[in-house]
Each structure stands twice: as C-alpha cells, then as structure tokens.
Design a protein around this nucleic acid. Sequence first.
DNA 1: GTCTATACACCGATAGAC
DNA 2: GTCTATCGGTGTATAGAC
Lengths: 197, 197
Amino acid sequence: MDTKQEVAGRRMGPVGSDNWHAMLDGAETILREEGHAALTSRRIAEQIGVKQRLVYYYFRTMDDLIVETFRRMSARELARLSAARESAQPLREIWAVCVHTADARLVSQFMALAHRIDDLRREVVHFIDASRSIQVEAIAEAMERSGTKSRVSPAGLTLLATSVALAITRESALGITTGHHDVRTVIFALMDDLEPG
Amino acid sequence: MDTKQEVAGRRMGPVGSDNWHAMLDGAETILREEGHAALTSRRIAEQIGVKQRLVYYYFRTMDDLIVETFRRMSARELARLSAARESAQPLREIWAVCVHTADARLVSQFMALAHRIDDLRREVVHFIDASRSIQVEAIAEAMERSGTKSRVSPAGLTLLATSVALAITRESALGITTGHHDVRTVIFALMDDLEPG
DNA sequence: GTCTATACACCGATAGAC
DNA sequence: GTCTATCGGTGTATAGAC
C-alpha cells in the first residue's frame, strides 16, 4: 500500500498513505453532511488541514478521488457482508449490515454522481453484483439447511430484502415510517423460518 | 395560471406561462440526460432558446426552479396514480405507473438534491406520503373485496411493492437484472389473488 | 417581457519554487 | 512532499436599457 504513481510525467502521491486516506475520509464526511455540491478540492483540503494543491498531488482529478472514495467504502462494506455471511446467523447479520451501515444520504449522492462518472457507475454495478452474490448464497444455503420451501427463488428473496432495507433507511432519514414496522415483522418471520434460533 | 408575482420589489414572470413551462421542461430533460451538475441557468436558457437572464425573470433562484420542477412532476405523477386508482384494475394499473413512469435517473437526481434544498426535501416527503396513501387504499380495498387474508398489512404490502418497483427500475438502468423476473412473478401472483380477472 | 452587460465568487487544474 | 501563485472557465444573480 505504498505504491507511488506517475501519470503523464506528473509526480503523484503514494496510494494508501495517511494523507491519501485522510482525503477520502474528508470526502466521505463532506458527501454525507453537505452533499455532492460541496465536494470540492478546496473544501477537502480545508477539512483535513492541507492546501488545495495537495489534493491534486494525490489524485489526478476530482472524479478520480470520488471513484476512489466509493471503491474504498464498497470494499469495506463487502468485507462486512462476508464476515456476516460466515457468522452463526448469516441472514440476521447480513440484514443488520444492510440496514445499519448503508447511509442513505451517502448512497443517494453516489447514485447521482454515477450518472455522470462512468468509472463510478461501473464500480456501483460491481458492488451491487458482488454484494448480491453473497446474499443469494446465504439465503440459498439457509433454505436448503432449514428445508424451507418457498415460491420465491433465493435471488428473488434477496432482491426483495435488499429493496426494502434500502427503502426503510432512505425513508427513515426523511422521517417517513409508514409500513416499516409491518415489513420488518415479515422479514423477521421469514428469517425465523430460514434461520431458526 | 397567470398569476404575476413580485418578490422584494423585483418584477417576476407569470407562473404557468409558456416560458415558465418551457424552462421546467428543459430542466427535466437536462436532469434526465445530463444530471444535476449540468442543470444551470445558462444550460436551461440554451436548451429552450432564450437568454440566461430570462430564467431569473421567471424564477427567483435556481433552487426555486428545481423545487418547482419537482412539484410539477410529482403533481403529474399523483394524477396518474389517482386515475389508476379509479380504473377497473387499480393494482395492475398502479404497478404499471410505478414501474414505467418513475424514471430512475430523475429520481436519483432529485433525491440527491433534496439533501441540500430544504424545500425540495419537504416536497419529496409530501409526494411519498400522498402516493403511498393512494396505494394503501387501493390494496386495502382489493383485500377486502377479494376476501384475501394476508400476514402483511396493506401498508406493509405497499412498502414492499414500491420498494421493489423502484429497485427494479434503478437496477435495470444499470444493467442489473438478478432476481427481477422472480420478484415480478411474485408480485403478479399476489395481484392475481387480490385483483382477479 | 426580453435583452445586454457585468459584478463577484468559486471551481478544476497546472507551473514551478522550496 | 508540500507549498505559493495563478490561469481560464463557469456559476449565480443583479442593474438597468429597450
């Protein structure tokens, strides 16, 4: 994690260094608290106490920085999902990860940015594919182990669960709660069948 | 629809006039095709063939224009939902409205902007509340009429359906289709029970 | 009503010193 | 590695003529 880069003859800062991480931390904070409009090189520099020029020493463009921010975050999230997958109660743990760590605001900012930044869109697609794979495996295994029959395939159940998890976090952030409790009850009843104990 | 306004002594263009609508049309198009970053007064003026100054004759600020764009669009959407609600097959019609007209890109742009613009966030909350009311009523009535029993309340079913409808449109736009077919099958099976014919 | 012209702030990105 | 300084561009918004 100390690879120096050189792009088109320009000296670049080491990937994975303290400043590098600090800048991504700053980007995350700004995105979460102020939104994409405030995510500028100057704002990031101010946030972590360096000069604006330094941002361009570590990242070739602002878009690069944004993509890297998402990449680091999604890697972290996938690691959490993998860990949950291998826990004693995979389904409940995965549900907890989906509901508690997916910051709805951050997600909406990245989704909007993915519209414009092709590399980011590719990363988003990769993240959704990868996380869904983990979830589908977990559900398929739980169905087999518990002998539960369902009209819905593991892939279908996964889409259902992730959809409502995201909707619940998004709406909660907006102060909307209609139907949330009822859906949670259904999800937990389903998990009681699939993952007893 | 011809109310002239005056704000802080500044002459303002008539709400509902041709130019007023043209500007909102332009804003929608730009948001859909280029994203929020491209939504500027200059870009809108260019889009509809007027000078940039005119945008500020019809709208006090860009944020006002954005809020108005969402307001007009959500009113249109609510009208569609109401019409679907009173059709022969309300559930199927409402599902069609949710899946086909909710442009996932536009939604993500507005959600991201709502982070920053308080008035927009209020409009978004109002829209979600209003549309959900219509949907819950439709489902409750269908359950009663068909005598269908369900573990899930109408509000819960509504949240489930709207969540997956949005997820399906969003993911389709990204080229992801895992589980989509299976979930659609479940939804349609459910509607076969609730709304025979 | 619609325009020209413009003030002013801020942004991304780079050159080059230390 | 980190900095000062700066260029060129673009954004919001307003004053005031026609």
